[in-house]
Write a protein that binds this DNA or RNA. Structure first.
Lengths: 222, 222
DNA sequence: TATTTTTTTTAGGTTTGTCTAAAATATTTA
DNA sequence: TAAATATTTTAGACAAACCTAAAAAAAATA
């Protein structure tokens, strides 16, 4: 089915809200995500319901149908492939690519996606560590935890971020916290949850606030 | 100035009509190019006039202002860069890329264009031999002639096409008539303008109808 | 449980880009 | 040059995607 930019953005937003919270998806939550008024969301949701892309009963919240989820995942796949293209081929930094990928994700061409995927080496993650769904829409997602849940003196690898804002990403760059970096928690302050961590390739310990720690995803190094 | 897809398409169409015929640009000609009704063209042209992108007086035809031309050339630049990307990096054939580039040409990001341009090696031509305007909007266009105007027994190089339709391009592929190919006209039939040409790397002469010949651009090999 | 507050929907309106039909203007032809 | 024809514009309408304000329903609170 041929969807408009706007329809695709709503489906993507609904998918992402579902990823975060598992209770019912409200009109207001969608309005916040797509930056539109709740009234506009109701309009669009009714339209998507007629197209059988979402399940909807008034006042009862929204969920994606199988078709709707397929479309949403397709858009996310394209977004992440383009982000990786921008970083790995064109030399953009990871804090610069979101807005451009928001445009590129709506380009419609199955063969383009297929070729781009191969061109990039059939990647599993985008530049922020988010998984890129495969051709069939399956996410490859190995076990990751938040840095706030890390154990002391265990070697982890930085493998993703929760906050994708350019400001946060630029802060991480400045701290040398790039994807793949090896991290060991050396000290945790009970009072405020802040921690001192050791970074591979640097002797001095790094101070990390809990606000930063809860936006970093790590996995154990086997 | 931020333009809509539609506005950009109109400006591009007007630019291309001007390239072909030098008399006044009519509402009907634009309607044909953008596949809209003449009434819609009038509406849009009036809007572009208010935005100072075209010169317009009712019933008197249209022309691009300096600003309008700048925007049109920017879109054409992006279209041709993307076409080259699709062919040279993703492995598409020259007959497959037009429709995808029609979408990609509207992506808005100056830094993206800049980086794409470098990534592609600051190219001068797209996969069809059309010149890619440089950063300042200047076209590099060396002297080319139509194959119909070729002299007998002179060595030329195939360097562009007039007809960009997939059917024509696929026909050329089948005939081995790819860009850069060396061509010598060996025989011309006065009656119908058809010709026999010698292709570098092939012993037998190739028969070419005048309809094909007048859609091929060549330049003399120095 | 009744009232208040919050959320969601409906009603009615706007803008963009399109359309058809009719009117106005320009061009061609007799 | 007058009539016929073709082109262009205007008028009025429509769909998509949004908006605000008001009404309806649900949820929270007293």
């Amino acid at each position: 089915m041929q969807l408009s930019f706007s329809e695709e953005n709503y489906l993507k937003a609904i998918f992402k809200i579902r990823e975060q919270k598992s209770d019912k998806i409200t009109t207001n939550a969608i309005a916040l995500a797509v930056e539109a008024s709740p009234a506009s969301v109701t309009d669009m949701v009714q339209k998507l319901h007629e197209k059988k892309l979402v399940n909807y009963q008034r006042y009862q919240g929204v969920s994606l149908t199988t078709q709707g989820e397929k479309s949403a995942v397709g858009v996310i796949r394209k977004h992440r492939l383009w982000e990786l293209f921008l970083v790995s081929k064109l030399g953009f930094t990871w804090d610069e690519v979101h807005d451009i990928a928001e445009q590129l994700e709506h380009i419609q061409s199955d063969s383009l996606v297929k070729r781009l995927y191969s061109f990039l080496g059939k990647p599993k993650w985008d530049p922020h560590g988010d998984p890129i769904p495969d051709e069939r829409g399956n996410f490859y997602s190995p076990k990751t935890i938040l840095l706030t849940n890390a154990l002391k003196d265990i070697k982890y690898e930085l493998c993703g971020v929760i906050d994708h804002s350019p400001d946060f990403l630029k802060y991480l760059d400045k701290q040398g916290l790039t994807l793949g970096k090896k991290i060991t928690v050396k000290q945790i302050t009970d009072y405020d949850g802040s921690m001192k961590i050791a970074l591979a390739g640097s002797k001095s310990l790094k101070f990390i606030s809990v606000d930063v720690a809860r936006n970093l995803l790590i996995s154990v190094i086997k």
